[in-house]
Design a protein around this nucleic acid. Structure first.
Lengths: 342, 342
DNA sequence: ACGAATACTGTTAACGTTAACTGTCAGTGT
DNA sequence: ACACTGACAGTTAACGTTAACAGTATTCGT
């Protein structure tokens, strides 16, 4: 009851040795044209498919990397996954996805969750904060790359530059003459949102302005909408003239509520969001947004991880961790204008 | 330069045989409590991690399934992937994703793209039509499940019931007294859109109504918006009183454009979309939509695939293919009302 | 015509794991 | 006291592949 034909089967029908078949299959080593043709015919005849388990065992590599994330449906994660699969494909690697439960709170747990998978390296999308970043040392010998802006000693990291993004938004508003610039944070568990909040506050103070923190949202458009209805008065009175929202969904909700309140965007209030992800969903979008370049981050994460994996295979030890931040770009669609005069 | 400790290393430090260590690692077979403790200590000491390549080679299974899709960012595919990873996880299987290039046009090519991956079964998300569905016979011995509503003999299939969805939309409009019901199709390459179109036309004729096909769109909100601006007159004149759009993005564009044209939804025109996916992105959403239950489809696809894989492992041959359609549900948010009187 | 390089093919021995079998010892029932 | 059972541990072989080495035939330069 053999499920798959093996090298031995091909070798038998072709009348050559296993090694010759292997040479044809891998392309390594010399084989005469006649023999190659004979082997290829035999392969077709018996329906040979290389057994990747045996290959992996022999070569010590699976040609696959693992990706761990908490929520596959989150806006950014899809972009990341896109970049990761794209870059991995280009290098002939497959991508194995593992969704982490909310009970996972440490990097060590993430490692355990992926320990038994057939993979050569790991990319962890760290939307939530893990508690052992300072003390963590890898158990596995597979290289680990974290997608986070937090500092970690023992692993490579890469992320969008959340702090630079917040500064860019504040500066953009300020350069239009705004001084009453508010920030709408995302949920507390989001590392990205926290960094944005801190950088926002710091920059505001640097410019001699007072930070104006709105109550933190849940990333949804409905939250932004409800909040917009509440703060309409503050905008009308000029207590707020610009809002930096931690994501586009909430910004879009704000936008619509403020318009419905009879306010003009950007006339009465400027708006900047983050993600640059709504243009397919929302028609005629007029919302300035910071593009996180998720696919680019995903691609680079793969490059870092595979470079480490290959170095390890050659030399036996991992290269020193690298840490990268990718700058965000402000995409202008006309939701920021000169500050209103009151 | 050993990268990973092996059973042999553990056996040596624990002073037992490899097989005993294996028994502890897998939990199969009898081991005394004292020996087990000794082995577990040794495992910790040398940092043992089971080698999944060797396991897979020995057991003939990777505990992983492959998923092939054309576009990971497409609305439905994310939901599918969510359901797939969830169900696979629950059965202890990992999910490996492979993105297909646009040059892939046959199932045979898909098979080749996944042939070398460490997987036990394959799920193909068939957004685009593949040309060899009638003639295809699997080369690999891994079970293949297609996510498509098209008929295929040689593989199991599952999908949302696109035809039933179109009928549901038409019937819902009709039951509100509408007769001038238009359909806005998606791009021609989309199998789902084509089935919806055909079923829409058939149902309209069944009800004695004339099909009203709008020029096909590209799934984006902007397209819907532009079209909405164009057909405002038709709505005002009563030539169109209801529109069934092939996805929510286009429906949302229509909605906004028609509102801007001074028309009332649902007063002047009823609207139904497909996907039920906008509620996070768009605030205060008032769009009736057919939910495809993507996560449910993903889960069932995994069940079908793993059942086949396990049957094959036990008996040596695959079970007969199954074919399932999952009904869509109409989620009402108030974009359909009584037909206007003209 | 000679040794040397080259092209090609075969043999052997692992990679780490586990199924199947063999052996030992203590406990049980008669 | 006997065979008999079950709990436990060890030995052997194999899963399919490929690196390293060992051959043989062919070609080349002198």
């Amino acid at each position: 009851m053999r499920l798959n034909a093996s090298l031995a089967d091909v070798a038998r029908t072709a009348g050559v040795s296993q090694q010759t078949v292997s040479r044809v299959a891998t392309g390594h080593g010399q084989v005469s044209a006649a023999t190659r043709a004979k082997v290829l015919d035999a392969m077709r005849a018996v329906g040979y498919r290389p057994n990747s388990a045996a290959r992996a065992l022999r070569r010590g590599s699976f040609q696959a990397i693992g990706v761990a994330m908490f929520d596959i449906t989150a806006t950014g994660n899809i972009g990341l996954l896109e970049g990761i699969t794209e870059a991995a494909d280009a290098q002939g690697y497959a991508v194995t996805v593992r969704i982490l439960g909310k009970d996972v709170r440490t990097l060590a747990q993430v490692e355990i969750a992926l320990a038994h998978l057939p993979i050569d390296g790991i990319i962890v999308v760290m939307e939530r904060e893990l508690t052992d970043l300072g003390t963590f040392t890898p158990l596995l010998n597979a290289p680990i790359t974290l997608i986070t802006a937090l500092p970690v000693r023992s692993c490579s990291t890469i992320d969008a530059d959340q702090a630079q993004a917040a500064r860019t938004a504040v500066d953009d508003f300020a350069s239009h003459g705004h001084t009453r610039i508010a920030f709408l944070p995302g949920p507390d568990w989001s590392v990205a949102s926290q960094i944005r909040r801190k950088a926002y506050c710091a920059r505001m103070r640097q410019l001699g302005l007072e930070p104006l923190l709105l109550p933190r949202g849940d990333w949804t458009a409905d939250y932004g909408y409800r909040l917009g209805k509440q703060i309409g008065g503050d905008v009308r009175s000029g207590r707020i003239t610009a809002i930096f929202a931690a994501n586009d969904n909430m910004a879009n909700g704000l936008y619509q509520a403020l318009i419905e309140e009879g306010l003009r965007v950007p006339g009465d209030v400027g708006l900047i969001g983050v993600d640059n992800a709504l243009s397919v969903t929302v028609p005629h979008l007029r919302l300035d947004s910071l593009d996180q370049h998720f696919t680019r981050i995903g691609r680079q994460a793969v490059d870092i991880t595979l470079h480490a994996a290959q170095t390890q295979q050659r030399t036996g030890s991992l290269p020193a961790p690298v840490h990268r931040l990718i700058g965000m770009d402000l995409i202008r669609r006309g939701s920021v204008g000169p500050a209103p005069k009151h």
